[in-house]
Design a protein around this nucleic acid. Structure first.
Lengths: 340, 340
DNA sequence: TTGTACGCGTTATCAG
DNA sequence: CTGATAACGCGTACAA
């Protein structure tokens, strides 16, 4: 900066102003400074900038993993949107372990993150305490929880699961099962499981406890399908909490000669890229991953520049009807009979 | 820091030393300092640290997109490995556009990245010039290019494609086609296309120019399959440059009543999570995504601490034989006939 | 083993 | 509109 100042025949203060307060500097001086800076390949030292201005232009995101399409997509857009405002994103992956998320988040803050994106409900009591005293703007995504201690930019997991089940029930299904992820450390899973149970209870359907817990890989989905056929063989409607496991369930069904949807109707969750291309095309719940990322960035950036807290936003999720569900066998025969 | 010093009854210098040069400080003083720091919630300001020590503890990665499993997985492990050494990773997504990658990389460096992970061959002449003068350690992944200007930690794309084709040729195929991504800005695609053409030429096979260029979505794969059937209907062996498009090709084939592998044999590239679960299970090339990420991190970290440049590493990629390829129809009939 | 004091490269304040 | 200069919070010679 000193060199640029000397070359341009001005003081360092003016160089700084030429970059940061361009309209307080005379036209030609500004141009001269910018030109020599360019020529000398000068770029401000971000550490010095941050030290003096108390602005790091860093934001943080704590997510379970990047190795899962729905999170990668969200972060991709979060990062991209924030980059357009001159912020860089640092991400911490927590795994699905509840335990170290607070540590990881503190690392992010200690590293100078000015705002934070989280995933799901805030559960660790220490983290709750930490976030209750005002530090920096934080949003949490994925779950929409009106009473959450930080603003949520997510969707209603409960309603989403129920809408899928409503669809299946309307098709005539009465015997349900669910393949879920571990409820431990994931409020999304707990909420979807609760929605499942409540729905079964309210409608007096069957299968309230027919819940198979597995991880989120295709292989787990396949394995879960085998467990389903073994433990709950009269199931006609299967609710999968991710498309990944639905994928596994579908492919295992084919292998075993179980026909989807004729023998068992299946709905997924996420609307992954491949959902429409599965055999049969998967009926599933579309989740606003890209929107959550982008909107979180915009909200947090707004909050950073105006000082007001981000708003709670309930984004839309909706069932996409494709071909993996149909009326249960008995009903179809009934219909056929009545049509005759 | 000043507060910690006062509370602990020492000078700020001692506080600093308690953290950074623990063995130059007496046992009890160190413990006292660390304890009060803990109690006061003190954490060193990274900007001041970076300004003074000239070490940001930031590394950068420039990749096409996070929204593509193979890159997300690589970055996930890169980031994770570097985090264990106290470094944070900032990532810039360049899209598949050749144009702005240099800009993005400079942003990373200007932001204080002490080391860089890149993807593929260095092509932009400006970037070549930039990287030729020594700045910071850089590795490029995915492609293994012995004469590259920065160390590569990748695999041999040429050999990988040829091994897939060798397999198909050994099965008896003579009429080939390829679904590739745009060669523009992707040396991986160019290399695989060259491998394809060379192989066809050397073995005097057919289809040297039967290359369909599409983007990397399942939908594009499906669309490419239609184009293939339209333009090169007598193809018996299809080489797909990603599993994503192979997925699309398979699902479109099913829709159209084309049997894989009986009518057309298909091989993919990447060994995506779902490859084994497709119908038929996809024969494909396993790519060391996780290894590239983790090893790049270790190499760069080594380089950062010792000062020597990272080494070139040629990682393994290999064909995983599943069920999407078999001998071409004519041959099978021949075999049947000879068996009779 | 510990303390004092300087400087890292900026931005902000205050004069002019 | 511009220049001089004092912080920002830390690490490290140097002195004790």
């Amino acid at each position: 900066m000193f060199d640029v100042a000397r070359e341009a025949g001005v003081s360092v203060a003016t160089v700084s102003r030429a970059f940061n307060l361009p309209d307080v500097v005379s036209e030609d001086v500004r141009r001269r400074v910018l030109a020599t800076a360019q020529r000398l390949g000068y770029a401000a030292n971000p550490a010095a900038k941050a030290l003096r201005s108390r602005k790091t232009h860093i934001v943080g995101a704590a997510i379970p993993t990047l190795d899962y399409a729905i999170f990668a997509k969200m972060i991709n857009h979060f990062q991209d949107a924030f980059a357009q405002h001159g912020y860089i994103t640092i991400v911490a992956t927590t795994g699905f372990e509840h335990a170290n998320v607070f540590e990881k988040i503190k690392t992010l803050v200690d590293r100078g993150a000015e705002a934070l994106l989280l995933v799901g409900a805030i559960e660790d009591p220490a983290l709750v305490r930490y976030l209750k005293e005002p530090h920096i703007p934080v949003v949490t995504t994925y779950s929409y929880i009106p009473e959450e201690i930080v603003p949520c930019i997510g969707f209603d997991n409960y309603a989403a699961t129920q809408s899928a089940m409503e669809y299946l029930a309307d098709l005539g299904h009465r015997r349900f099962a669910m393949i879920a992820g571990s409820p431990k450390g994931s409020d999304r899973q707990r909420t979807r499981i609760a929605a499942y149970r409540d729905f079964i209870g309210e409608r007096k359907l069957e299968g309230e406890e027919n819940i198979i817990i597995r991880d989120f890989t295709i292989r787990d989905g396949a394995e879960a399908m085998r467990a389903l056929l073994d433990k709950y063989p009269d199931t006609t409607a299967l609710v999968c909490n991710t498309d990944v496991v639905a994928f596994g369930a579908l492919s295992e069904s084919r292998r075993l000669g179980i026909r989807i949807p004729q023998d068992i109707s299946v709905v997924g969750f996420d609307d992954a890229e491949y959902a429409a291309q599965l055999d049969p095309p998967l009926t599933t719940i579309a989740v606003p991953a890209e929107e959550m990322g982008r909107l979180s960035a915009e909200m947090l950036h707004m909050s950073l520049s105006t000082g007001d807290s981000p708003r709670f936003v309930r984004l839309d999720s909706h069932l996409i009807v494709r071909k993996s569900a149909c009326p249960p066998r008995g009903l179809k025969q009934l219909r056929l009979a009545s049509a005759v």
